[in-house]
Design a protein around this nucleic acid. Sequence first.
DNA 1: TCAATATCATTTCAAATGCAACGAATTTGG
DNA 2: CCAAATTCGTTGCATTTGAAATGATATTGA
Lengths: 166, 166
Amino acid sequence: MTPDDFHLSSFLPYRLAVMSERVSRRLSVEYGRSHGLVVAEWRVLVHLLRCGAVSVRDIHNCVNLEKPRVSRAVSRLEMEGLVQKSQGEGDGRLVAISLTDAGRRALADIIPAATRIEEHLTAAVSAEDLDAFFRVMEHMHSVLDEDPEAKPRPTMDFNRGSEVMP
Amino acid sequence: MTPDDFHLSSFLPYRLAVMSERVSRRLSVEYGRSHGLVVAEWRVLVHLLRCGAVSVRDIHNCVNLEKPRVSRAVSRLEMEGLVQKSQGEGDGRLVAISLTDAGRRALADIIPAATRIEEHLTAAVSAEDLDAFFRVMEHMHSVLDEDPEAKPRPTMDFNRGSEVMP
DNA sequence: TCAATATCATTTCAAATGCAACGAATTTGG
DNA sequence: CCAAATTCGTTGCATTTGAAATGATATTGA
């Protein structure tokens, strides 16, 4: 491949960035207009719905956000009454962050719309193509997992050890 | 789908964001460490390699960057001698931005490494899966194209009209 | 036991970001 | 021909960002 044949528009990292940003922005219209949330707050809320009372560190590990960003998102959400912080039981450094009822209500409002957008994106895609799509995604992750220059893959919110609020 | 079954880690927009950011960061190690570039500057350089002398507006339309970001990226690149600005011929508002020899040399340095990363990501993927992958990407774009709430898809750097430096 | 080290959440601070406003140049329409 | 409206690139400004520092708590190991 000579450098002259190099196109941004066919370059995989660029195509991923464009797609990701386009989808992300479309989604943010949903939680932004209806509840004034930004992406960091949305991710924190969703993580809490699944994982209950967790620490900032745990959120940081699971939702691909830097720690300060999580900390600030949690503060804003607390001010708006969507989450609550309480002193962790054992370790005094940890903060136990959990959803309030208002937070749960907000999610109950947003999640159906978010799911609708997601489904709409792939509604006309065949099961085979969709399988292949995620197979390729998974493969790219595994390539990066082997690459010492790449950042580790974020922890998934399932199949984690017992390090959630020890 | 009840809200309780909603997982961030299986949510398509989130998965796209994680993959995109991971790939993008890995790539930025390449042009960052070797030439001190950031992603905006990298995109501008690549676009110029393909499209010659173009305006800020044209770059903005083609590389998915806001206009101020393009303007500032071009300024930095000019300071470092990788691009040059000249008065556009006809329209006095337009600025004709083009690569310098140093800019071309930088690209000749970076592009092979970037291509290697891209190839490595999909080297072990079957042609069928890769086709399916891009088919799904294209379909998601076409869904967003129909969505009035979504931002328009950026112009590709090929098959554009003659609106490049009219 | 207790000093040294590590981890947690937050804050600091400088840089990046993007919307909106701006001045300059061009196009439009009367 | 010229006033109004549009488009260009840049800059102002408030917000967001994240790496590093901070202070508080835990853990380690001698």
